[in-house]
């Protein structure tokens, strides 16, 4: 059983808020906007998702701005992954083939996690078999809040085993553990849940704040607590765990605040899509607006970038 430190909420929030005060301008801003774009897990998790919508999202993932070469004189990076429900994985896998963009599937009884363990594992297995190379699992918050930490750890370990064994040629797929911090009540709980997850996942796997179905979703404060858990694991055992804040990050400015926080908490090594992601859907359009504004000096309209 891991011993987690307690968190001083006031100071954590204060520290997190301080990252919004960094002056990121000109070249640093240009680089930051493009880096943020390359870190987006473009997400659609709605009951009304259709294959057509997912294909359209995948097209946007491959080429966020189809006329980038004409308007900007450069090819913008593609996003990191497309994140969908398990039923949509075959569609996304086909649409993204050969693009280098990951297919992420939420699984294990998303978003509640309130299903029997065997059903949840089967959910993940099926998504991997259908072509997902990243699994975004949810933890059982009910078990966590009633103090059954071992049960939570064992569940995470079971899903991690499924992910380690799956994928093309059995090379394994990446796992992201969603803590759903909006339901964990305190920063102490967020830290403890982070430590439990980190203990049971492999190098290169992620911890993730939220499903996007609960408010509040990602905040600067919880993200900082989780980044510090990742830092302590890195300093302690050398394990490199990624971070994914998800939900509520809609503006380019917010994304730069998060990047400043990652850089100052974990260092440049984490400023890569391999170790940091944004779970978002509308963020991409705002990033594009800012990139266009920086280049042309003109503000773009919201409808300039196709909906996906």
């Amino acid at each position: 059983m891991v011993q987690s430190p307690t968190i001083n909420r006031v100071m954590a929030d204060e520290r997190a808020a301080s990252f919004t005060k960094r002056s990121i301008k000109t070249k640093a801003k240009d680089a930051g906007l493009r880096l943020a774009l390359s870190m987006v897990d473009l997400t659609t998790l709605e009951g009304k998702d259709s294959p057509e919508k997912v294909r359209s999202l995948c097209a946007k993932a491959r080429r966020p701005m189809p006329d980038d070469e004409r308007v900007l004189g450069e090819r913008l990076p593609h996003v990191a992954a497309v994140c969908v429900y398990p039923a949509m994985v075959p569609v996304a896998a086909e649409a993204l083939e050969g693009s280098g963009i990951h297919v992420a599937s939420v699984a294990t009884g998303f978003p509640s996690g309130q299903y029997p363990l065997d059903v949840r594992l089967r959910d993940a297995e099926r998504a991997i078999a259908d072509g997902a190379d990243e699994i975004d699992m949810v933890i059982n918050r009910g078990a966590f809040l009633s103090g059954r930490y071992d049960a939570v750890g064992e569940e995470i370990a079971s899903v991690a085993d499924v992910c380690a064994a799956g994928g093309p040629g059995g090379r394994g797929v990446h796992l992201k553990v969603i803590l759903e911090t909006g339901e964990l009540e305190t920063y102490d709980n967020v830290r403890r849940a982070s430590d439990i997850a980190i203990e049971h996942i492999r190098d290169g796997d992620f911890i993730k704040t939220s499903t996007g179905k609960v408010s509040p979703a990602a905040t600067m404060g919880v993200t900082l607590v989780m980044l510090e858990a990742i830092r302590d694991a890195w300093l302690g055992s050398g394990k490199r765990i990624g971070m994914k804040p998800a939900g509520g990050i809609r503006t380019a400015k917010q994304s730069l605040h998060y990047l400043a926080m990652v850089k100052e908490t974990l260092g440049d090594a984490w400023l890569t899509p391999e170790l940091f992601r944004f779970g978002a859907s509308s963020l991409v359009d705002d990033l594009l607006r800012q990139i266009v504004k920086r280049k042309t000096g003109r503000y773009a309209a919201r409808y300039d970038f196709g909906v996906a």
Binding site: G297, R298, Y299, A300, A301, R302, D304
Partner: peptide, 8 residues
């Protein structure tokens, strides 16, 4: 000039 160029 920004009234003129803002696309929204």
């Amino acid at each position: 000039e920004h009234f003129a160029s803002h696309r929204e």
